[in-house]
Design a protein around this nucleic acid. Structure first.
Length: 690
DNA sequence: GGGCCTACCTTTTTT
DNA sequence: AGGTAGGCCC
């Protein structure tokens, strides 16, 4: 009770919010809804995030404490945006809420309660690459010749199948029957691989992304005390982008929301993650699973001109009948120009057009940061990037090479991860394979050797690495590096865990509490610094021509780490935030053109939007057409279109020069199907003087 | 057998 | 720019 009052007084420092004044009627109804299950259908640009954040503020104003609210989102970007706006609005720091992506909250729950399913607090998360590497090892250990047969799928595809099965909670047999029928003869093998893979991960104390959801649900289901705690603790569960939840995510929400406290917010027309198991069935059947659900529709669009909205509505109207909830966005803005469709010769000409038009827009008074260039796939933006760089036009690209996926960043993080969890042989291999003459096989052998030596002599694996008996088996050319690396790892192990605890049970006479005081456990940023100053810092100088800029990247991780108190939390974030893009070309906050994939632009808005590569085969992608996934691409197009506030340009190259011989292309079927008066065609040759 | 080097290809989207 | 198959060397 006192606690609640304190939080309220904090809010009181802020000017009180006049909910009625600041929201429209539709929004107000959703924001102030009575407790109970609610489904908020909020169309694009209708103030979905606004509604969500005001809902939080409303709940706080009603005496709910931040700790009783769970905020779930789908992507890091959405989560960051939402938490920031909640903080701006309520003045309450975001750390008082449980908020973040599903994976983030799952990770946290497992960190607290993982023992019951066999995971220690120091378990480590594997990213895509690690997961595939481990799976590949598992497959080889079961059938050493499996990958020798070129007809067999690669680890990547097998992982994709296993992942899809888990996210949709289907058996691997079913998934293969439906989506991978050509692998029919491998059903049993892959099922076996999946089982062993699962066991191996547990043994190694690692999880992949999917485990973060799976173990989370598992803990809730098998541990009624924990389940009851969270079910009662979270008085309000708010789920953003509900249309993009997959089966396991909706199961988690349903389970946590047993007391009818879920408010799901979403837009079925913007479901664009079915390839990851998202199912807009979830949103369509929400009220069946949550009886007495109150539905709120928010359809007033504040973002776009009537012309752009009409275009968007027409795109939706071309969906097959009965695909989603009926909705029609209503604009309140004054009329603007029709969307422009711009045929261009090729990627180069497309870039030229965009740049020329950008110059015009700047003269009209727009800022660079008002302009976004959206595309279906990273590689569609290649020409664009080249031209912008050539003319030194500032741009921020939130796609392509991801910061945390670059080799040197992963290498550095591998040090920390291995020191934190020495059972993780996958990450060990990644590290020592950097040394000359050490490959996958030798790395595995050396690991076993150190493990055995450690067991016998009551030392950790890392302590054993520099022992003569192990070093003796290291290839001559690698010895020097090996020893340096060992010392660095030993420093890290000490810095992370403090003085070594003997691996076996403590003897009765050990006074480990006294020991703890001798060496302090370092903060995460200090640990990162140790890693950079260790073996790797020297190594990278010899390997990378541009080692200085890479070194800067690593140094920036020290800064990132200083925001963390707990090493495990830092490591989890380093993996889960891997979509955090590097700010190449310009600073994130700089006045620069934004370039992103449509997926990453979801939830964002820009005065001016260029959609490039709007040709049949590029958007929808040929592959989607082949796989019968065109409807999802259409929703994606809808998302792209509804990002625009004032002006929308849709360009399509007529010749594809990407790989090999030039191929003629036509406009996207999504354009062809629209009535002619939905847009205006711009003939580039006649419009050279904007 | 194991590792290295070169040429090729990768991916559609994210955690 | 990073990962990988195929050919070659130890």
């Amino acid at each position: 009770m006192e606690n609640t009052l304190q939080k309220k007084s904090k809010l009181a420092d802020f000017s009180p919010i006049d909910f009625k004044e600041e929201l429209n009627e539709e929004q107000y109804a959703a924001v102030t809804a009575e407790p109970g299950p609610a489904l908020v259908l909020a169309g694009a640009g209708s103030g979905k995030t606004r509604t969500l954040t005001y809902r939080v503020a409303w709940l706080i104003s009603q005496g709910v404490s931040p700790g009783e609210i769970l905020l779930l989102t789908f992507t890091n970007k959405a989560s960051k945006e939402m938490l920031k706006r909640v903080e701006d609005l309520t003045g309450i720091e975001t750390r008082f809420f449980w908020g973040g992506t599903f994976h983030h909250i799952g990770q946290k729950t497992i960190r607290f309660h993982g023992e019951s399913i066999g995971l220690q607090k120091n378990y480590v998360i594997h990213d895509q690459g690690d997961s595939e590497a481990l799976l590949s090892d598992v497959v080889k250990s079961i059938n050493s010749k499996f990958f020798k047969d070129k007809a067999n799928p690669k680890a990547r595809l097998i992982h994709e199948i296993i992942s899809y099965a888990r996210n949709t909670r289907q058996t691997i047999r079913d998934v293969i029957n439906i989506r991978y029928y050509w692998l029919d003869n491998l059903k049993e093998d892959i099922t076996q691989f999946a089982k062993s893979y699962q066991e191996e991960k547990l043994k190694r104390q690692v999880t992949d992304y999917d485990d973060l959801l799976h173990h989370w649900l598992e803990i809730l289901k098998t541990n009624s005390e924990v389940a009851t705690y969270y079910q009662n603790r979270f008085k309000h569960i708010l789920v953003d982008e509900y249309q993009d939840t997959n089966k396991i995510q909706s199961d988690i929400i349903d389970f946590l929301g047993i007391n009818n406290q879920v408010m799901a917010v979403g837009d079925d027309a913007q479901c664009i993650y079915t390839w990851r198991g998202a199912s807009f069935e979830n949103i369509m059947t929400f009220s069946d699973r949550h009886p007495k659900t109150v539905m709120h529709k928010i359809e007033t669009n504040y973002r776009s001109t009537p012309e752009i909205l009409q275009f968007a509505n027409r795109v939706l109207a071309t969906q097959p009948i009965g695909t989603g909830f009926n909705k029609e966005l209503k604009s309140i803005r004054p009329s603007g120009s029709l969307p422009y469709v711009v045929p261009v010769m090729d990627g180069r000409k497309q870039a030229e057009f965009v740049i020329k038009r950008v110059e015009g827009l700047i003269n009209e008074g727009y800022r660079m940061s008002d302009i976004a260039i959206l595309y279906r796939a990273h590689y569609h933006a290649l020409d664009m990037q080249v031209e912008l760089s050539r003319l030194s036009i500032p741009f921020v690209i939130t796609s392509g090479v991801k910061f945390f996926e670059q080799a040197h960043v992963r290498d550095l993080v591998a040090h920390l991860r291995f020191a934190a969890n020495i059972k993780d042989i996958t990450v060990f291999k990644r590290l020592v394979c950097l040394l000359p003459k050490i490959g996958d096989v030798t790395a595995g052998r050396l690991y076993s050797l150190a493990e055995k030596f450690g067991d016998k002599n009551n030392k950790t694996i890392i302590q054993s690495l520099s022992n003569e008996s192990v070093v003796a088996k290291v290839p001559a050319e690698a010895k020097e590096d090996w020893i340096d690396l060992s010392y660095t790892l030993q420093d890290l192990e000490l810095a992370i865990n403090g003085p070594s605890k003997p691996k076996k049970e403590l003897s009765l006479f050990d006074d480990d509490t006294a020991e703890e005081k001798v060496t302090k456990i370092h903060t995460p940023d200090e640990v990162v610094k140790i890693a950079i100053d260790g073996w790797y810092g020297d190594y990278m100088r010899n390997v990378y021509v541009n080692w200085e800029s890479r070194r800067d990247d690593l140094d920036s991780i020290v800064g990132f780490a200083s925001g963390f108190e707990d090493m495990n939390e830092l490591l989890a974030q380093l993996i889960l935030l891997n979509s955090e893009s590097s700010d190449r070309g310009a600073n994130q906050n700089a006045d620069a053109i934004r370039m992103t994939t449509i997926h990453q632009a979801k939830g964002l808005e820009y005065p001016i939007v260029f959609i490039i590569g709007m040709a049949e085969g590029l958007f929808p992608l040929k592959r989607s057409i082949d796989n019968d996934d065109v409807e999802e691409e259409r929703r994606l197009f809808y998302v792209a279109v509804t990002r625009a506030k004032d002006e929308l340009y849709i360009c399509y190259p007529m010749i594809n020069t990407q790989n090999g011989p030039s191929i003629r292309m036509g406009p996207s079927q999504f354009l062809e199907i629209l009535p002619d008066d939905s847009y205006e065609i711009l003939n580039v040759r006649q419009t050279t003087n904007w």
